[in-house]
Design a protein around this nucleic acid. Sequence first.
DNA 1: GTCTATAGCTGGATAGAC
DNA 2: GTCTATCCAGCTATAGAC
Lengths: 201, 201
Amino acid sequence: MTEDTGDMWVTVTPEASRRLLLAAVDSFAERGYHGTSTRHITAGAGMSAGALYVHYPTKADLLFQIALLVHDSVLRTLHEAVAAGTGPPQRVRALMYAFSAWHARHHRAARVIQNELGALGPEHAAQIADLRRRVREMILAEVGAGAASGDFDVADLPGAARALSSLAIDVCRWYRPEGPRTPDEIGAFYAHTAMRILGAG
Amino acid sequence: MTEDTGDMWVTVTPEASRRLLLAAVDSFAERGYHGTSTRHITAGAGMSAGALYVHYPTKADLLFQIALLVHDSVLRTLHEAVAAGTGPPQRVRALMYAFSAWHARHHRAARVIQNELGALGPEHAAQIADLRRRVREMILAEVGAGAASGDFDVADLPGAARALSSLAIDVCRWYRPEGPRTPDEIGAFYAHTAMRILGAG
DNA sequence: GTCTATAGCTGGATAGAC
DNA sequence: GTCTATCCAGCTATAGAC
């Protein structure tokens, strides 16, 4: 239950492209997309101003590549989490644990995709919106299975699914690495909290 | 329970200052602080570029004034909500209802203060951080009173208070006015959800 | 593939007429 | 108090040397 999808960025090569991507995540998370200059990014990667454009055509493309990698990591994490569960309560517990812990572990990357996606152009935004819909539908399906089986007691199914998702996503807003709880502790607490929200004793 | 603090902006005079402030809230919410130009703001208020500086010394000051007014509105809304409650469950229900509904009703203003406060200078940021601490402490105190009285069953008091606050705040991220639920319906559902999270049957 | 230098544009803020 | 015109700093992206 404490596993993750490994390093989200290992597939990015060459190493200079990855350094630029990581510097962009840090700066976008801290200053926002529009508050970040290409010089912030190249300086963060230890390069000079012009070096960015050898690896990425525009600053906007950098944001898009980040969004693709991040949503892919989330989807794989959630699929791995539910795969092990044998019944709805177990599966939803694992889902909530994994989703919450992911948002703590990757809070910088998560902040970027929660706050800065408005800077994407229309067709890039549509592509990312599709990935995000798949996350929502997965959570709704798992909660719905538990409602159908009688394991959960929910009067408002979409509302309850939204509450679980909201709780996990918002971890990236308030989480601080130096805070009192580890990502795993947050995952465990929110898995328990999810069962209460769903009326599963 | 459906009351609010009235119009958050009525105290802003003259009317031209208020128009600029409202245009700034809309643009900051949609494009972010750094993505918003002073020309966006003045155009949104139906004025020309230079007119802003008659009413506000800088663009940053506009953000600060918004943050002050918004946090004042939240604090007044929460105090009014708990004032009517006679016991911890009633008080926390009213608090959660009011806090959630406020974030739906004022989702644009709320997005600005959740996402754009990083653009404030150090002393302005410190002043706003103080107001935000008062909100957190109020929620913690109300939940703590219910734990102490035995009305709630919580193993992790700060964690549970954080979950309630997180759930209500995140409403401003996903809420859409054209969506299926009204602010009051969201408030009612989240007041009920809070009781489940707190183990108050 | 990285550097320096710079083109071309947009932004925040100011000046001065009305 | 609002307008138009403008200053100049900072931005994205490109050019050309190495």
